[in-house]
């Protein structure tokens, strides 16, 4: 029998897109086998995240490359993900899904160091279509975890939290407002739906549903401009070149 140190599975952290997209710091612990962690502005140390949001679009980075770029939105913002053939399970699911659609994503994190800015992306391990209830639970849960981290920042700051403060100079109030807005968005929707349920106005529900989707997409388009600021910095040409050289190990490598 081979003695193998039991490596504990990394917990999937709950972080809103707004906070994730502002995360630029990656821990660099010695040793190749050490897992890498992204430290977020509120001090969450993430190797893996669980995220629920709307799949806005998916596109193949180059035709027939089987390497896809996706964008997912929660009530606070948008985050990008890359899926290659090494994420076989996620890829298989993605090909079946037509955006816009609510999805749950379990993903590892990558940070590309651009010339002027860093850019975070998800490397999904698993993708599945979920209902709006799951999304609501996720927003509530993520809100709770984020508030816990922010509380920690105000009270007894632990090591990660201290480091996050130094790296990001985190504005606690800014993040509290983000969480608050996310909760209000959910609450509004749940209330609208429960009212509609009472009147049993089925056709109206569908209308509202559609309106919601369009509303969401427009919201997202506003935020997209933020992202497009960053895009030139990733230097997609470089990026593709690297892929041909098989040097995207970080991004494509199968999780050990």
């Amino acid at each position: 029998m081979r003695m193998m140190p039991l490596q504990k599975r990394e917990i999937a952290k709950r972080v809103f897109a707004y906070e994730l997209s502002k995360s630029t710091y990656m821990t660099s612990e010695s040793g190749d086998r050490m897992p890498k962690y992204v430290l977020t502005p509120t001090g969450a140390r993430c190797n893996r995240v669980f995220f629920v949001g709307v799949l806005l679009d998916k596109e193949e980075v180059r035709p027939d490359s089987n390497f896809w770029r996706i964008r997912i939105s929660d009530p606070t913002g948008v985050i990008t993900g890359f899926i290659g053939r090494y994420q076989a399970d996620a890829l298989e699911s993605l090909l079946e899904i037509q955006p816009p659609e609510l999805i749950a994503v379990v993903a590892k994190l990558n940070i590309f160091e651009g010339e002027t800015r860093s850019f975070i992306s998800l490397r999904p391990e698993a993708i599945s279509v979920v209902d709006s209830e799951t999304r609501d639970f996720w927003v509530v849960e993520t809100a709770r975890r984020t508030v816990e981290r922010l509380k920690n920042m105000l009270d007894d700051c632990d090591e990660d939290c201290q480091l996050a403060k130094e790296v990001y100079n985190t504005d606690v109030e800014e993040y509290l407002q983000t969480v608050k807005n996310a909760l209000l968005a959910i609450k509004e929707e749940v209330e609208v739906f429960s009212d509609l349920d009472k009147t049993e106005a089925v056709s109206e529900t569908e209308l509202v549903d559609e309106a919601k989707v369009t509303k969401k997409v427009t919201e997202v388009e506003v935020q997209e401009e933020d992202i497009s600021d960053i895009e030139p910095d990733i230097d997609l040409d470089d990026f593709e070149f690297e892929e041909e050289e098989w040097d995207l190990s970080d991004l494509l490598e199968e999780e050990e």
Binding site: V147, K151, L154, L183, I186, K187, S194
Partner: peptide, 15 residues
């Protein structure tokens, strides 16, 4: 969800 949302909102407000 509504109740939980309200609980967290109250907490945020106090913070």
């Amino acid at each position: 969800v509504i109740k939980e949302t309200n609980d967290i909102l109250a907490e945020i407000q106090s913070m």
